[in-house]
Each structure stands twice: as C-alpha cells, then as structure tokens.
C-alpha cells in the first residue's frame, strides 16, 4: 500500500511521475521495450511495430477528439499525406529519414488546419461528416495525381538508411518506430500540463467560458487539428517506411474508424487510453487468430470454421467495452492501481 506522498516543492507536485515507485515502473517499461526485440521472434516484432505506429496515430487523434472534443474521421487520410510525403521524398530526393518524417508531419498538419477550418461553425456529428468529406477528397487526390503519387499502382520505396544500414527488417525498424512513438506520447503528456493543453480541455468542456477566459476558439481548434494531424503524418511516415508500399487503398476510411474505436476502447482524454486502446485493437484479432490455431488439432477445419467467429468475438468485445466500461481500459487500469494503493486496508 502507499501512504500519502509528501512533497515539498510545487515542481515535485506537478511532475509527470509523482513518486519514486512510478519512476521505477516507467524505467522498467523502457528497459522492457529495449529488451523486447532481442527476445521476440519476427512475428511479434512485426506486431510491436504495428502497435507502436497505431499508438502514435491514436495519441494524435486523442488530442483532437479526446481532449479538444472535436470528432474527426480523417486520421487515416492524414496518415496518407504523411506516407506519400515520405515516399516521394525518399524516392525522388533520398533525403535523410528524420527530415522526411518531420516533413510528413508538417504537411499533414497543414492539411489538418485546412480541414479544421469548418470546426468553428460545425461540431459533433456534423464535423465528423466534414472530416469524412476531407478524407474522400484526399483519397481522390492520392488516386488521381498520377505524376506524384503514381495513381492506383502506388509507390514502392527503398528502406530508410541510418549510417549506411538499411532499416529493412522489423528488428531494425523497431529502433526507429518505438523511440519516435515514445517521444510523441511523452510530448502529449507534457502538453496537458501546460496552458495549451488546458485550453484544449476547456474548449471541450465548455467553449463559452473558454472564450471569457481569453482563449480564442478558432486558433486553438486549428492548433489541435494541426497537432493531431502532425502525429498522424509522422505515424503515416513510419507506416510507409515499415511497409514500403504506399497505395491509395492503404489508408481507407475504415482505418480512421479503427483509430476512433481505439481511443474509445482505451479511454478518451487520457494519455494511457490511446496506448492501451491501440494495443488492444491491434493485438486482439491476432491473439484470437492464434487461439484458432491452437484449437485446430481438436477441431477439424478450425481455420475455416472459426475465422468468422473471431470477427464476431472482436466486435462483441468492442460493444462490451462501450456498454460496461465507457471510460475505457484506462479506467480499469486506474481501478487496479487504486486497489493496490489501498490494499490490504480496503479491498
């Protein structure tokens, strides 16, 4: 159990990790992330990279939808902007990958600002529809701006190179993707300790009184769109380096819905939410697939029979979360922590 933690400075009270125990756990997590690639096989490394990319993108969407209260179904399209930017820069100019990733983020952010302009007037479902429209327009551009995007065939690109080493395996990409994701998640966590993050939440909770406090709504809504799309753009860039083929069909509307589902399942408006949600949404179908594989010795035709069941189970899990745990996985985690803080005096 934990006894009240006494703090003597305001800095200590405002720290990201308040206690030594928390800091130790975080150090442990980082160590586990470093050790993971040396113990996991290629399949799990592939999954880890995919989860990390999804975490980055979901964290971005969470800034916009979870914290600022602006529902967007354009996240995948912004990832598309990032992926195409990286592909074009890598193929045509061969610029360093870090520069490409930043460019991908910035270009996606510019797209986000454009799409965000209606957000001063339209809210909720109406804004969601407006962002869907934007994602259709972007899809059209990807498919038809042949001179740049190579149309429906898409672009195949060389791997990223770091000091002459091609990052062409999951093992190598892991060292690019995971640090970038960790940095972006930390950035989001920091943001919500400052005035800008507070302004986002203020807009979500009550935009009228936000204005009275001197928060210009349009400026901050656009800032939230830009930041969210920047995250999407960088995630899209990582995606492009990871799969090395970018086509207009790589970023369908369903993918935007996937991210929205991830932050809802994980818990909107929390830093932990998109991490848990993206991991859950990416891993559960795979885990269920493994489960089907283990059953195959006993159940004949298991793969054929159980594949549909797998999809149904996955859907039911999502519905279950919406009904029984609307605050998401982050809330469950909070409850578990609380239990151990109070244990054994209160259970």
């Amino acid at each position: 159990m934990r006894i009240g933690a006494a703090r003597q400075t305001y800095a200590a009270d405002e720290a990201l990790f308040e206690t030594t125990v928390q800091r130790a756990w975080f150090a442990g997590l980082l160590a586990a992330l470093v050790a993971f690639p040396f113990m996991a096989d290629a399949y799990w490394l592939y999954l880890a990279c995919l989860v990390a990319i999804n975490v980055a993108s979901a964290t971005g969407l969470n800034i916009l939808t979870g914290y600022t209260g602006l529902v967007s179904l354009g996240q995948a399209a912004f990832m598309g902007i990032g992926a195409y930017t990286v592909a074009v820069l890598e193929i045509r100019f061969g610029t360093p990958f870090l520069l490409n990733l930043v460019a991908a983020g910035l270009l996606a952010a510019a797209g986000g600002i454009l799409v965000g302009i209606p957000s001063l007037r339209v809210k909720g479902l109406y804004l969601a529809i407006a962002t869907i429209a934007a994602s259709f327009i972007l899809h059209f551009v990807f498919a038809n701006w042949t001179s740049v995007t190579n149309g429906v065939t898409g672009l195949s690109m060389p791997p990223a190179r770091l000091f002459g080493v091609a990052l062409d395996t999951s093992f190598r990409m892991y060292w690019l993707i995971v640090p970038v994701t960790v940095l972006m998640v930390m950035g989001a966590a920091n943001l919500f300790r400052t005035r800008i993050g507070r302004a986002f939440i203020a807009i979500r909770d009550r935009d009228i009184s936000a204005e009275v406090l001197g928060i210009p709504l349009l400026r901050y809504k656009l800032m939230s769109f830009a930041l969210s799309s920047f995250y999407a753009g960088v995630a899209g860039g990582l995606w492009a380096y990871f799969f090395r083929v970018v086509t207009p069909e790589s970023f369908p509307l369903v993918m935007s819905i996937f991210y929205l589902a991830a932050i809802i399942v994980g818990g909107m408006g929390t830093i932990l939410g998109p991490i848990l949600g993206a991991a859950f949404m990416t891993m559960v179908p795979e885990v269920l697939k493994l489960g089907v594989g283990w059953l195959s010795p006993w159940v004949p035709d298991a793969v054929a029979l159980l594949s549909p069941v797998r999809t149904i189970v996955f859907g039911a899990l999502i519905v279950g979360f919406l009904v029984f745990e609307p605050q998401g996985l982050a809330e469950i985690w909070r409850r578990v922590r609380r239990f151990f803080h109070l244990w054994p005096f209160k259970t």
Partner: peptide
C-alpha cells in the same frame, strides 16, 4: 486556466 491569456508558452515549449 484563468491565467491563460497572460502566459506565453507556445506549442513547442509545451510539448
């Protein structure tokens, strides 16, 4: 939040 308008922290500082 009341102090928002009188602070200067920008987006990059905040991240």
């Amino acid at each position: 939040l009341g102090r928002h308008a009188h602070m200067r922290t920008g987006l990059i500082d905040a991240l």
